[in-house]
Amino acid sequence: MADDPAVQIESLTHRYGQRVAVDDVTFGVDRASLFALLGPNGGGKTTLFKVLTTLLRPSAGTARIAGADVLQEKDRVRRRIGIVFQDPSLDEKLTVLENLTNQGHLYGLSGPKLAQRCRELLERFGIADRTRDRVQQLSGGLKRRVELAKSLLHRPEVLILDEPGTGLDPAVRATLMRHLRELSEQDGVTCLLTTHLMDEAERCDSIGFLDQGRLVALDTPSALKRTIGGDVLTVCTANPAEMARRVKERFGGQAEVVNGAVRIEREKGHEFITDLIEAFPGEMESVTVGKPTLEDVFVHLTGHRLSDSEHAGG
């Protein structure tokens, strides 16, 4: 049993009516690792999340958590996973401690053992001083921490998090990811999270790109970035489509318009800038060159950007 991967998904497909939300996805997650499912909203992440948390029965295929089947052995799966929901699953009218106690009861924990466990987790996540506060008085970041503490009460082997960073500012997000790293390193907990935020995915051991229901890539962050040879140049200009056409005509290779700018992948980007400027003097408002980001990899693989909603997604 200990040899089973933490999560194993086999040919998983789910349709809502005619719309295919998850399309024949297969992958595994190693024990005690951090795994990010990265993709745009509507890419199929939430559907996968619901299947893994036993809240949705997929149209076809199966998934196993530490060897237990999410369809056949629901209760075993439920005991092995901890869940951090995107909208915290807390009762706003209850205090932090009441929420944790209630959760403990749902998992068959009670008495001094449960009280001790609650204290321990509240201290670990720095919310011990808010124990008696009602949840409605807490900030979004604190709620997420309470939600995290709540999900760990029964010592799950696998922690599944749905968009844990959404709505949090980057600093709070970084702290959260540090907590997850600590959990995987010290306690051997496997963390699987869905996200559309690159900084979050960047901190994971491996990333699965999910786009339009398909798994388009799966690797470590650095390996994914290496799939792009060299650098990424972004050219801002008045007529990007025309510029992209002329760049291709003149230099060959690829150049495409992404979000109103021309995007070019080239080795030795700094040298290519000079060529560009000489070829089209005065026609470019700006040119930037950078190492490829996960966003660039995503664009490279799918032809569109990861998050139009990064700012709106708040």
Binding site: D75, T101, N102, H105, L106, Y107, G108, L109, S110, K113, R117, E120, L121, R124, L152, L153, H154, R155, P156, E157, L183, Q186, D187, G188, V189
Partner: peptide, 22 residues
């Protein structure tokens, strides 16, 4: 916290009576 340490070993009733009461 340890993945290996299953906290207690809750009985069947504790998955019925205890959640209901809570």
């Amino acid at each position: 916290t340890g993945a290996t340490g299953v906290a207690g070993a809750p009985s069947a009733e504790s998955y019925w009576l205890l959640p209901m009461a809570s």
